[in-house]
Design a protein around this nucleic acid. Structure first.
Lengths: 181, 181
DNA sequence: CGGTTTGTTTTGTCAAGACTGAACACGATG
DNA sequence: CATCGTGTTCAGTCTTGACAAAACAAACCG
């Protein structure tokens, strides 16, 4: 799982910005790996997360084969995961005239975030259904109904506030950037 | 994965509330399964989720072996998963004097929710670290920094609002209930 | 003590799914 | 048309983790 560095770049003493570059590189590595783990928690393949991390850090669109090279994974994995992210609206495939190759850039990423909202809504809905089924019961106004209420209220509030954060952010910088869904 | 019913309780036709009971039972089944799926999304074993669902619906503490029986899983799985949830502060093991057996009840469940907050905070922190590393760079105020800012702002806002929802709910009914962390 | 009840730990099996290499498709290019 | 460049798909391997059965531990009972 841990990567081995074939080129340790031993000629470091010459350049003044070398140290900064290196630590930046290390930080990038960490960020990318962290994004990999994060997205794995969200049931996405680790490579997809790393892809997102890398593309967040890349000001310009990145070439398909550069992705494979930089992340040290097979082109097959890049193909699969770019497609996945593309379909989710998280990244965007761009092409250039006279260039057969594919480039990718992130897509100011609410795609992922909307997924979270959906999950919360689903939980809320599930508890609501249960509450409904419970209603005709005699003496059903007890602890169980209370718990379900708590549950429902929590998730609905959460989804709402998440939505409003998204909306606020979209209106603030969504007009300057290509702004997807 | 689908359960089969060995004891259909055939003597139900006598009671007038039979229909309601049945649909309630079905709804419970659905709720429990839904909770299983939900928690699986959060990287917990499915059985743990079902356990949470069942305990939410149980007004009184439930006996260890009843859990196994009701969910139709092995006692080993119950043991493992109750322990897991207990350590997470999601459920509570209770005992009764003169009774060797263990009972479980849900622990008005912020345990799970705090996990979500932690995840958000971790994401925010990761982006912040990256931003720091980026700072000394020349011309680093570009798109990348902007994206990281967006990211940071989003997750911190989210975690904050989640916390405040939790706090509001805790203060509203936390004093009547045993109220854990 | 032997045997029972209750819960835990260990061991093995199984399934899901991530990742890869290899075969493939297909347009471009000499 | 043969070949190369580029990306996709397929088939196989490998890891991970959930789950169960069985062995185990410990408290209780006769």
């Amino acid at each position: 799982m841990t990567v081995s560095e074939p080129t340790p770049l031993p000629d470091r003493s010459a350049e003044p910005t070398a140290a900064a570059d290196l630590s930046l590189h290390a930080a990038e590595e960490r960020f990318i790996e962290a994004m990999g783990l994060m997205h794995e928690e969200d049931r996405l393949p680790r490579i997809a997360g790393r892809l997102v991390g890398l593309l967040i850090l890349s000001p310009d669109p990145v070439r398909f084969d550069h992705l494979a090279e930089r992340l040290r994974v097979s082109r097959a994995s890049i193909s699969t995961n770019t497609r996945l992210l593309e379909n989710m609206g998280v990244i965007q495939r761009v092409t250039r005239p006279g260039d057969r190759r594919d480039y990718f850039q992130i897509n100011q990423e609410p795609g992922l975030l909307l997924r979270i909202v959906d999950r919360f809504r689903a939980r809320q809905a599930s508890a609501e259904e249960m509450k409904q089924a419970l209603l005709p019961e005699p003496g059903a106004g007890g602890i169980v109904a209370e718990r379900l209420d708590w549950f429902i209220r929590f998730y609905s509030t959460l989804a709402d506030s998440l939505n409003s954060v998204l909306a606020a952010m979209a209106s603030r910088d969504g007009n300057s950037r290509p702004g997807p869904a």
